[in-house]
């Protein structure tokens, strides 16, 4: 194994994920092509995170009343989703320069170690949320602030801004 692959394997292990070494230059061809499938899977993962955060965020904002049981349930879901093994969906070559529907910047794959660390920060914040969500609105809001910080930290570096 080359150094490069070793490094990758180490990162993948650190994440508890497997980074697939798939052909880098595949072109988007149809609904079942790897670029489309992997990008769609990553987005689906993010949407599941969002869905559960939206319930906690709604309570934090005051749009829905705080309910310890519902908050704890959403946080437990969030934790499970955060720990889903999605490593092989971060397919090398499925970045924003190769596939127009991808907003994943190429530098993710150049900084896989840092990217993996930021991913684990999110997982740790989701774990903390699972502990805090049922402990009252203030504990939940504090945990949500930390969780949001981990979203921003990664999106700031590694997500291409929308062409709005």
């Amino acid at each position: 194994m080359s150094d490069r692959n070793n490094r990758k394997a180490a990162c993948a292990l650190a994440l508890g994920l497997t980074v697939a070494l798939a052909p880098a230059a595949v072109m988007a061809q149809g609904p079942n092509d790897p670029l489309h499938m992997s990008t769609a899977a990553r987005k689906a993962h993010m949407k599941l995170l969002k869905w559960n955060i939206s319930k906690l965020g709604g309570m934090a904002k005051g749009a829905i009343p705080y309910d310890a049981e519902k908050a704890a349930a959403a946080a437990a879901n969030l934790k499970a989703v955060a720990h889903l093994d999605m490593g092989d969906a971060w397919l090398e070559g499925s970045d924003s320069t190769a596939y127009e529907k991808s907003r994943a910047l190429p530098k993710i794959w150049e900084n896989m170690e840092d990217f993996g660390k930021k991913f684990m920060d999110m997982q740790a914040a989701a774990d903390a949320m699972a502990e805090a969500a049922g402990q009252g609105p203030d504990a939940m809001k504090a945990a949500l602030g930390n969780l949001g910080g981990t979203c921003k930290a990664c999106h700031k570096e590694y997500r291409k801004p929308k062409d709005s």
């Binding site: 955060i53 965020g57 921003k152 999106h155 997500r159």
Partner: peptide, 19 residues
């Protein structure tokens, strides 16, 4: 917080503005 109404999060330069 950086959370949009649908709980996406701010990225890029705007993440710093939120900080």
């Amino acid at each position: 917080t950086g959370f949009t109404p649908d709980f996406d999060s701010a990225g890029g330069e705007m993440a710093e503005v939120v900080e």
